[in-house]
């Protein structure tokens, strides 16, 4: 009934927005990649390896940003029982997990030339690793029920529990890290970063965000269509 009134409106505006989003993503990512690889200067200490930053840092931002989106949509879904919010949270999770994995892999690739090892129990990387597990838990929970609506509700509660716990986990991991090893952390995002490096970074960050928005819209649209298909099947069954 009214449950699909809103989704219909969503399908309308998202359909119009989608091509613009996709085009802007493509332009920003191409420009950003060009600037990062050819225009931005190599670091005087890290050399060419610093270019990994232009993937690693936006991925790290997206990893937490997407979790925030998930938690916010889950809250909306729980409080107002808004079906589109439910779908936004569910469809964000694999994307967020993807960004988190990209952040971990690029961090590891960056770590090899920097620290001479693929993995360091650095506070920042460790927190991202825990975030990755939170994403995996959410995805596993949402898909663990035979009834799709049941998984959505459980996932929404878990996302909120996770968002309350994230600062606590982050705080305790930082504490643990200072106890066990002196900070050997690379300083990124420090205010001293040169403008020639900052611009490509910002362009990449906006590009990553739009990339996420584009993929999210595509995923949400297909999830809504799948739900509609299930509803039609059900009608067919009830009529039979």
């Amino acid at each position: 009934m009214f449950r699909f009134a809103n989704p219909n409106r969503f399908m309308n505006w998202s359909g119009k927005l989608l091509p613009w989003c996709a085009a802007a993503t493509a332009i920003l990512l191409i420009v950003g990649t060009y600037l990062a690889l050819f225009v931005a200067p190599p670091d005087y200490q890290q050399g060419e390896a610093v270019r990994i930053m232009y993937v690693h840092v936006p991925a790290a931002w997206m990893a937490s940003f997407v979790y925030g989106v998930m938690a916010a949509s889950s809250a909306v879904a729980l409080i107002w029982r808004h079906p589109v919010a439910d779908i936004a949270a569910q469809q964000s999770a694999p994307l967020g997990a993807g960004f988190t994995l990209l952040c971990l892999v690029s961090g590891s690739l960056w770590g090899e030339p920097m620290w001479g090892t693929w993995w360091v129990w650095d506070a920042r990387l460790t927190s991202v690793l825990v975030l990755f597990f939170l994403y995996l838990g959410y995805i596993a929970l949402v898909n663990a029920f035979d009834e799709p609506t049941r998984g959505a509700r459980a996932g929404a509660i878990l996302a909120l529990v996770g968002v309350v716990n994230l600062p606590i986990i982050k705080f305790s991991v930082d504490w643990w890290n200072t106890l066990h090893q002196p900070a050997s952390v690379f300083r990124i995002g420090a205010p001293t970063i040169a403008a020639s490096m900052l611009w490509p970074l910002l362009i990449m960050a906006v590009g990553f965000t739009l990339f996420y928005v584009t993929l999210l819209l595509v995923r949400m649209r297909s999830a809504l269509m799948a739900a509609k298909l299930r509803a039609l099947r059900l009608q067919e069954f009830q009529a039979a």
């Binding site: 009934m1 799709p148 049941r150 299930r230 509803a231």
Partner: peptide, 12 residues
């Protein structure tokens, strides 16, 4: 009253 079980509207 209307009731939904899962994705199925049971009565309305």
């Amino acid at each position: 009253l209307a009731c939904r079980r899962g994705e199925r509207l049971v009565f309305a």
